[in-house]
C-alpha cells in the first residue's frame, strides 16, 4: 500500500482492468496524445495526464486517440459496448456532453429497456467536472444531476483516491453504462490506496463521519469540505454525520433516511447548480419519507443559479466552502421549532 494521488488511482484502476480483461479499451481525445504528430507518443496521457502510460503498455489498438468528435466516439463506444467490448471513453470535460448527449441518453442508456432486456452496455464514460479551476462557464459545470435524471445510466462521483480506484474498477466490470465523474481539483489529492485491485459497490453510501446532531450529505469534492466542516464543528461541540453517497444513481437513500432519523437535521452540500440538483432531490425524498423526524427545515448548500464565473473573486464566491457548510449546520441547529413534545 502506498500513498497515491487521485490521478494515479484512476490510472491504476484502468491499467489493472486492461491487464485483466482484453475487452477493456480506452478511447478519447488526447487519451495518449501525439497521434500522427512528429513529436513524442503518449505525449499527454489525457489532458491532465490521467491515462499516461497506458498506450505504451497496451498499444494503440486498445488505447485509441480520437479526433475531436464527441458524438462520433462516444457513440462508437456505446456501439462497441453493445457488441462485446468494455470501452472506457473519456469525455474530457462534462460540459462537452452538449455535443454528444444523444448518444448517451437516447442510445446507451436505453438499449436495455428498449430492446426488452436483451442488451448489455458495459460502457464507462469518464469525465471531468467541477469549478475552482478558473476555467469559466464552459469547463466548470457539475451536470451530474442531468445524468442522474436519466434511467439506464449509473452515475459515480468518487470523493477520494481510495474511492476512485475501487469505484472505477467496479464501473469497468459493471454491465450497465456508467458515467464516472472526476473533479479536476481532486487529481492531486493523495490517499492510501491498495496496490491490488478492489471494488466498491454502487448504491452503498459511505459514512465518513459519525455524529449525533446533524447529518451532512455531500458529493465528490464536497465530501472533503463537509468532513472539514464536521471536524471544526466537532471541536465546537456539534457532532455531525457526513454521508458520501458515492453514486447518485443508484442512490442509497435508505442510509440517508436512517441517519436523518437519527439526527433530525439535514444539510445537503451539492456543487451542482441549485435547481433540480442532487440536493433538491434528496431534500424532496427526505421530506416525503422522514418528515416526522426533522427537527429543522432541510438546508441545501449549493452555488447560486448562475453560470460558473471566471474571475477568481467571483468563482470563490460562487463555490460552496467550509464556512458555508458550517453556517448551514449552525442554522439547522438553531432552528428548534419542531422539537418533539
Amino acid at each position: 500500500m502506498a500513498r497515491k494521488s487521485f490521478r494515479q488511482a484512476v490510472n491504476e484502476a484502468i491499467r489493472q482492468e486492461m491487464a485483466r480483461d482484453p475487452r477493456v479499451i480506452v478511447m478519447g481525445e488526447d487519451i495518449a496524445g501525439g497521434m500522427g504528430a512528429p513529436g513524442e507518443d503518449d505525449a499527454w496521457g489525457g489532458p491532465l495526464g490521467v491515462t499516461k502510460g497506458l498506450m505504451p503498455q497496451f498499444g494503440r489498438e486498445r488505447v485509441l486517440d480520437t479526433p475531436i468528435t464527441e458524438s462520433g466516439f462516444i457513440g462508437a463506444a456505446a456501439g462497441a459496448a453493445l457488441t462485446g467490448l468494455r470501452p472506457v471513453a473519456d469525455l474530457m470535460f462534462v460540459d462537452f456532453m452538449g455535443v454528444c448527449f444523444d448518444q448517451i441518453f437516447n442510445q446507451a442508456a436505453k438499449f436495455k429497456y428498449m430492446f426488452g432486456g436483451k442488451a448489455r452496455t458495459p460502457l464507462v464514460i469518464r469525465t471531468m467536472y467541477g469549478a475552482g479551476f478558473r476555467a469559466a462557464s464552459q469547463h466548470s459545470q457539475c451536470l451530474y444531476p442531468l445524468f442522474t435524471h436519466v434511467p439506464g445510466l449509473k452515475v459515480v462521483i468518487p470523493s477520494s483516491p481510495y474511492e476512485a480506484k475501487g469505484l472505477m474498477i467496479e464501473a469497468i466490470r459493471d454491465d450497465d453504462p456508467v458515467i464516472f465523474f472526476e473533479h479536476k481539483m481532486l487529481y492531486d489529492v493523495e490517499d492510501e490506496v491498495p496496490d491490488e485491485p478492489y471494488t466498491l459497490p454502487f448504491g452503498e453510501a459511505n459514512l465518513t463521519r459519525e455524529g449525533d446532531d446533524a447529518t451532512i450529505v455531500a458529493f465528490g469534492r464536497m465530501v472533503m469540505l463537509a468532513n472539514e466542516a464536521a471536524d471544526q464543528l466537532g471541536a465546537q461541540g456539534i457532532s455531525c454525520t457526513v454521508i458520501d453517497p458515492r453514486t447518485t444513481s443508484p442512490l442509497d437513500i435508505e442510509t440517508i433516511l436512517e441517519e436523518v432519523r437519527a439526527t433530525g437535521r439535514l444539510v445537503v452540500v451539492d456543487e451542482a447548480s441549485p435547481r433540480c440538483n442532487m440536493a433538491s432531490d434528496i431534500a424532496a425524498q427526505v421530506a416525503e419519507r422522514a418528515f416526522e423526524a426533522l427537527k429543522a427545515p432541510i438546508r441545501r448548500v449549493s452555488p447560486p443559479h448562475t453560470p460558473v464565473p471566471f474571475s477568481p473573486a467571483l468563482e470563490d464566491l460562487y463555490l460552496p466552502d467550509v464556512e458555508k457548510i458550517i453556517s448551514a449546520v449552525r442554522a439547522v441547529m438553531a432552528a428548534g421549532g419542531r422539537k418533539a413534545a
Partner: peptide, 11 residues
C-alpha cells in the same frame, strides 16, 4: 473497521 472492510474488498 475500515481497514477490515478495505481488505475484504480486494479481489
Amino acid at each position: 473497521v475500515e481497514g477490515v472492510l478495505r481488505y475484504k474488498r480486494l479481489d
